[in-house]
Each structure stands twice: as C-alpha cells, then as structure tokens.
Nucleic acid binder design. Structure first.
Lengths: 206, 206
DNA sequence: TTTTGACTTTTAAATTAAAAAGGTCAAATA
DNA sequence: TATTTGACCTTTTTAATTTAAAAGTCAAAA
C-alpha cells in the first residue's frame, strides 16, 4: 500500500467520522460519505471493502486516541483516587464528543462476532488492565490494603460500567447537564470506594 | 364494596399474577386470565375497568409485600453494611421470583404518566428513604463519619440501580447464575463503600 | 349484584410493494 | 498499474395495506 493511498484512507475516515459523530452509523450512508469527499460511491469500495470495515476503522481510530490520552493521564502524578478520577475526566471529554458512537453500540449488537465489537471489547479490556495496574501500584505503595487486585477492583469497574450503560440505553440524546451529573456521581463513588480500600480487606471466600 | 367482591378481586389478581410472572404483561391476555378463572372475559371488566388497572394492582401487591419484607430485614440487628447487604438479599429473592415484571418495565415506558410507573417510582423512593434513614442512624451511632446523608448515599444508590438496570436492559432472560453474580458484586461494592464512609468525609462543594 | 352475548374500537402482527442502501464487476481513465 | 466510474444486481429498510386478535362497551339476562 502506497503512502498516497494511506493518506486518502485517513481522509475518508476523517470525513466519515464527522457524519458518524453527528448522525450515527445507521443514519450515515456510504453514498453520503462519497458525496462529502467528492468521489463516487463505488470508488469508496476501492478503499474499504464494505461499510462495516469503514465503521470499524473509524472507531478504532477514536479508541486508540482515547486510550493514548487515558494512558497519559494515568502516568501523571497523584494517588489512586486522583488517577481514577482523571480517567473519568478523560472518559467524560470523549463521551461528550463521541457519545453518538457509544449510543449506537446496541444497534450493532446483532452482528455478534463483529470486528467492531471486538475493537470495543479490546478497548474495554485495556482500560480494565490499566485500572488493575494502578490498584497493584497503590497496594505496593501502601495507599490501600494489600489484597487480590481483581477482587478489589471488580465491584467498582462493574458499577462504573453499569452507570455508563444507563446512558447508552436511554434512547434519547442525553443533555450535557445530565452527562456531567453522571460523571460527577462516578467521581464521588470512586472517592468513597478508594477510601474504603484503605482499611478494608475483602474476605477470602474460596 | 362487599368483602365477597374483595375476595374475588384478590383471587383474580393472584391468578393474573401467575401468568404475568411467567409470560409478562404483554403476552398475557385478558381472556386468558378469564379462562383460568372459569369466567367470561367481559365479567373481568366488572372487577377491573381495564387491563392497566389489573396490572397496576397486581404489581402494587408484589411491591407492598416486597417493601414489607425489606422493612423487616432492616429492623433486624446489625451494622449499616449488614443491613444494606440484607436489603440486597431481599432484592435478590424477589428478583428471582418476579424478574419478568422488572424486565417488562421498559415495555410499559410508553405510557409515561402511568399508574404503574407511579407505583414503581413510589417503591423506589421508599427504598431510598429506608437507605437514607439507615445512613443517618449509622452516623448517629458513630459507625460512619457524620456528613450529609444524601451525598453519602447517592453514589451507592445510583451504582446499585444502574447495575440492576443492566439486567432489565438485556432482553434475554437472565440465568440464575449471572443474577447471583450481579447481587454478589453489589454486596462486595457495599462492603467496600461502607468501609470507605468510616473515615471518608465528602468535600462540601456548594 | 353479578354475569354474559353480541358488538365496536383499538392495537398488534403478518403481508406485500416500493424505495433506498449496500455491494459487484468489467471497462474506462490517468 | 493504480484509480475511478457506469451499469447492474442484491439485500435491507421503510411505508402502506391488510388481517387477526385483543381490548373495551353496553344492554339484557340470571
């Protein structure tokens, strides 16, 4: 693949993303994207074998950017609560910009073993890994009690994911105020939860 | 209203509930309920002016029973975490029995200012009140740091509600194992969260 | 007071037709 | 050879129409 082609691919993704972010995957057609680019619909097929692959690539771009920013935030100084709250803030900024992509996730659920779902799953796993690593670090530093990091982190992760999911499942476009309220609640939850881990040892019920 | 009629109404509700629990509101017809009772469909209209009111009364019965059991559980001895975990256990036992009613909540959402939604909202509010009362009690007893009980309880309540919502929104019938896992996670969350409130003072950001 | 038969209205499910979007390929262009 | 398009086909959505079933009414019988 020549660099020329790569540049064009990136241009296509960029253009498509603008529509995806505004209207969602379902309400964006291939021919609309082509029109935006000033090329024929069929020509798009030269660069992307089908719509799904364009959607996947676009989402992959966003997610890799997201993970990069999140990684950077985590590398900055602060204790466990600071870092987790920082992650929430990164999430909030991306959610504001790209919530349409998040909302449309259920729309794509039917595809099951989809490339797109795989990308989202991987991003989710990566976030979990990052959180777990921070939990371990905090334990080593003595910030929180030493214990199984998975057991310590899972309830929080599940809660945060579920709270996020509330917004995906309300099919109305959420307003900025209620989005902000959600993330604020998440931050409050983190503060109390992490404080709890400072003197709480989960019981070993194997 | 004569006691005779009341008894019959209760019988109808009982019979209808058996179908609602198994098939849901949407897939239970008025004539089926009538057939179960050995009366004509039109006769049902003598006791209930429409289907909605039968559904509402049935759900109200379940909810009042639920709140009664929950109240009893809370009155039993134990610290804040014990009581909250007890509440989760009550929730689990009712969810196992009546999850179909919970699942169908979205189905009824369209009715907006519905009697049924009002009943569910009231039950939800009552639970919140119970939890808040326990938070205040725990503060007075010195179990957790003194602070605004609403601010202390809200993140936990939101998290628990959202986690519950996950199951309402998966349109597949959930299996017992994953239901149990959900409630287990909720219990773990509570344990750590309450522990956190023992030495955590939420910042006053007015 | 309670029950039902005969009826109307409303809502949900199935069918079909039309339109739109997705996708292919061979030929033209550069 | 890499890129682009015209002509064409297939699949998916959407809208319109019908059909069946459930909800609901009411006067009259038990």
């Amino acid at each position: 693949m020549k660099p020329d082609t790569v540049i064009k691919e990136e241009l296509i993704i960029e253009t498509a993303l603008r529509r995806f972010v505004h209207f969602g995957f379902g309400k964006t057609t291939f021919s609309e994207i082509a029109k935006d680019l000033g090329i024929s619909q069929q020509n798009l097929y030269y660069y992307f074998p089908d719509k799904k692959s364009l959607v996947s690539k676009a989402v992959a771009n966003v997610m890799s950017c997201f993970l990069e920013v999140m990684q950077a935030k985590i590398n900055s100084t602060g204790d466990l609560a600071d870092k987790l709250v920082g992650m929430i803030e990164v999430k909030e900024s991306f959610f504001e910009k790209y919530f349409m992509l998040a909302v449309e996730r259920p729309y794509e659920v039917q595809y099951e073993r989809d490339e797109l779902l795989e990308i989202l799953r991987k991003a989710e796993n990566r976030q979990t890994e990052l959180v777990l690593a921070e939990f371990e670090r905090a334990m080593k530093k003595g910030e929180i009690k030493k214990q199984d990091p998975v057991k310590a982190a899972t309830p929080l992760l599940k809660a945060l994911t579920a709270m996020q999911g509330d917004y995906r499942n309300m099919h109305v476009v959420p307003d900025h105020k209620s989005i902000h309220a959600l993330f604020d609640t998440q931050k409050a939850l983190i503060a109390i939860y992490v404080s709890g881990l400072k003197n709480f040892q989960a019981p070993c019920n194997n």
